[in-house]
Design a protein around this nucleic acid. Structure first.
Lengths: 290, 290
DNA sequence: CCTTTAAATGTACTAGCAGTACAAATAGTA
DNA sequence: TACTATTTGTACTGCTAGTACATTTAAAGG
């Protein structure tokens, strides 16, 4: 990505945050970022494409930060989940991602619409996966419903939180309250056995590739965590943890993972002293994912 | 309201439903409704004002229908509430009110924004009042929170219902499911005593006049219902019920209520044979409201 | 039936918008 | 220095919302 191009993206994003997408003209962007019209249309084929570029760059960053919170932690710990949500809401408040999403969803442009729908589904997919971590596989049939509803009332609560001009810092309260509702809701629906939407819908809606990529991304982090738990009290735990961390960062963050290094790391991991059942199972799973 | 003007409103509404607000040009409206540009700007000072006129006319109708469902019914009956919600969602599906709301909320026009915000608050206010009917005064501190959250997850559920291309008729299932969640949620928050937003916020946000008018409107219907219940097994119940119905329709629907008729009706109602305590209390309340 | 008044029309106009085309200027590189 | 790629500025198209106003049509009243 061109530096200059990124600069335009940043400047335009700033303007969109301040004035909104529709109220910002291309002329504004040209003046504010100090480029000419010709250059602009060299970089982006349209104003809408620029917006998609902004979404991309901001969403990527947020996703990365959110996933980093999970590294080395217990995926089932609801406190981590709360932290992740707070992070995303904070990032949203500064970047106005959701606001832009909502502003733009009705603009007559199919590509843009599709992009935003996918963004929403991504969010839902992530929530669903995290709920499985937190509430366990047994609750699975109800967790998609809960993801939908949680998304609904979390954002509605947040909307009125900002509307009430409450201080930025107290977002955590809103999240804690919402999560408390979520927990009760999961119990409620699973006790009563009431389901509205089967989770299979998600796979149906979500173009396989993206869903799968996303899932495996999360799945690697999760599996690494589980493996680390197995290592507790092991004599060489430091060494093995380092190996696991290496595999994780190499596969997730490096642009071109060095295959041979990862493979050798797996060899070392397989040669662990007392190979517990869970360990070998998870290790195999991780290898497949990678 | 001019017939011709109403005709333009209808035609424009049709176009907005089909293509959306932004994708419909004034030229489209002129051709589709068969008027000239001059006439258009005689009726409406702008495209935005036309939209507000549409909102007004559709919302009024929906509000009326929804309130009529309550007439002569027990306001605490949750089945009636479900019917009201279904009605509103159906009306919304044909009129795309909410879609238009959402499309337009970010259009850079202060008047339009204010109008739409008020629409959302009205909805919230109504839900809150109905929840008090249904769950009782004792739950009041939590019912505003619940109204916010219910609004959030109801619409989110509905969004995915339409997204899943499920048949129109099964809306009732979605509503029943959502209401079931609501009931559990009310129990949950009131048991734990957790409150996020105090209901007083509503009065603070809502310009007094509108809120009050709205409340009393509903309140009359409610009080009349209660009075009718008192009449069961009374010898002249038919006559008294007719009097109550008359008062209700005269005050709510007539443009210039005939004061003297209403007053004489009250006189007749006060002269009831065995005046129970509840009866006189509620009658007095009704008189004050009127 | 004719006159007065009101409403509707059509057209030409302004100003702003997104996006295109392209020759000329500038910067980077070998 | 010469070649290449990028950047620039400007002029252009075709669309939009909204304005101005003289002209036509319809309605109402004496």
């Amino acid at each position: 990505m061109n530096d200059r191009k990124q600069h335009v993206i940043n400047k335009a994003h700033q303007l969109f945050i301040e004035k909104g997408f529709q109220a910002t003209s291309i002329q504004d962007i040209l003046e504010y970022s100090g480029i000419s019209k010709g250059t602009f249309y060299n970089y982006f084929s349209s104003k809408n494409e620029l917006l998609i570029a902004i979404f991309h760059s901001v969403y990527k960053k947020m996703e990365k930060e959110r996933n980093e919170l999970l590294i080395g932690q217990d995926p089932g710990d609801i406190e981590i989940f709360i932290k992740q949500i707070v992070l995303q809401l904070r990032s949203n408040r500064t970047n106005k991602l959701v606001n832009l999403f909502e502003e733009v969803i009705f603009i007559p442009d199919e590509e843009l619409k599709e992009f935003i729908k996918r963004g929403h589904l991504k969010m839902l997919q992530w929530l669903y996966q995290r709920f499985i971590d937190i509430f366990g596989e047994s609750k699975k049939p109800y967790l998609f419903d809960c993801a939908i509803m949680f998304k609904g009332f979390l954002f509605e609560n947040l909307k009125h939180h900002t509307f009430a001009r409450r201080p930025h810092e107290s977002i955590t309260e809103v999240v804690r309250y919402s999560v408390a509702r979520l927990v009760s809701m999961v119990n409620d629906v699973s006790e009563k056995g009431e389901q509205l939407f089967p989770p299979e819908l998600l796979e149906q809606w979500f173009p396989e590739s993206a869903a799968h990529k996303h899932v495996s991304h999360e799945e690697i982090v999760r599996t690494v965590s589980l493996l680390k738990e197995e290592l507790v009290n092991h004599e060489d735990q430091a060494k093995f943890k380092a190996l696991l961390d290496f595999i994780q960062s190499e596969t997730l963050h490096a642009k071109e993972p060095r295959r041979f290094l990862v493979e050798s790391a797996f060899l070392s991991l397989k040669a662990i002293h007392p190979p517990s059942l869970k360990w070998t199972q998870n290790l195999q799973k991780l290898e497949e994912l990678v």
